[in-house]
């Protein structure tokens, strides 16, 4: 199982010299298995970068299959889909997973971005590939190639979002990009979901009040991420979903502070890293 970070930002893409090391694309994490299964976690602008790289594969010839989970409808999680070229190539099959308990379907989310006023594609129906929307229940798991996929809903800002768990031969990966821990019970429920993961890819903006998202002295926060990862006993924590104002240098200090905090809390075996665009971790 290979995990590649294609987009690591929350909110809005940030091009420029200040973001070249960690990356400025909005969020997208790629999972690839040795049997060829591909799954994207979220469809920020990072997805379009991955899409261009995939044109040399079966997806470039209209003979490929691709899977996607969109955790929620905020722009930073969907804005790359219209520029995901494999979705435009007839013959490709794309499955977009959602959860049937949440009131917004992945199809509605994507379709509402493609209306003629906003997109020259005018509707998803013009995309060429065959797009389907399998629904999972919150208790079930779904086989995706050699992986087992499960979803859980998490509290998040004005709406709800999903966290995703993938179990495969090499280990278990959990992805929780946008999560606000409202209270102890909601926290417990999610720690149980994370428990035993080899890798947890976690929001680093979770404690921040959303009214601050435009402020220029905004800083990312690692406390929640370290605490839940420590309590759930995960082996490796990757922080992700950086604010647009966080420069590469700011992120270097964020990592150091997070590691210090983990040591102080007694989570001595927890290995912490920052998601970095273009980096691949193989399990």
């Amino acid at each position: 199982m290979h995990i590649t970070f294609w987009g690591v930002r929350g909110f809005i893409p940030v091009p420029g010299a200040q973001s070249v090391r960690y990356g400025g694309n909005t969020i997208c994490v790629g999972i690839e298995c040795d049997d060829g299964t591909r799954l994207a976690l979220d469809a920020g602008t990072g997805l379009s970068v991955w899409g261009r790289k995939l044109l040399g594969t079966d997806l470039g010839k209209g003979k490929g299959e691709f899977n996607l989970v969109i955790t929620h409808s905020h722009y930073d999680h969907v804005q790359g889909f219209s520029f995901f070229i494999p979705a435009l190539i007839p013959g490709n099959k794309i499955r977009v997973f959602g959860m049937d308990e949440t009131n917004l379907s992945a199809e509605d989310i994507l379709e509402s971005q493609m209306t003629p006023i906003f997109s020259p594609m005018q509707t998803l129906k013009n995309f060429g590939s065959i797009i389907t929307y399998p629904q999972l229940s919150s208790s079930g798991t779904e086989p995706v190639g050699s992986m087992e996929l499960s979803l859980i809903d998490v509290p998040h800002a004005t709406s709800r979002a999903l966290a995703v768990k993938m179990k495969a031969e090499g280990g278990t990966v959990v992805y929780a990009p946008d999560v606000v821990y409202e209270n102890a019970p909601s926290c417990e429920r999610l720690i149980n979901f994370y428990r035993g993961a080899d890798v947890l890819i976690h929001d680093s903006t979770s404690t921040v009040h959303y009214n601050d998202i435009l402020s220029s002295d905004f800083s990312n926060d690692y406390h929640d991420a370290v605490t839940v990862a420590g309590k759930a006993g995960v082996k490796r924590l990757f922080l992700i979903h950086y604010h647009q104002e966080m420069t590469d240098d700011n992120l270097d200090s964020l990592l150091e502070d997070a590691r210090t905090y983990a040591r102080e809390q007694g989570y001595l075996d927890l290995h912490i890293s920052l998601a970095q665009e273009g980096y691949t971790l193989s399990l």
Binding site: V20, G24, G80
Partner: peptide, 12 residues
Amino acid sequence: IPVPGPHTVRYG
């Protein structure tokens, strides 16, 4: 679409 990264630093 916005294109962050080392290859677009000069033009933006």
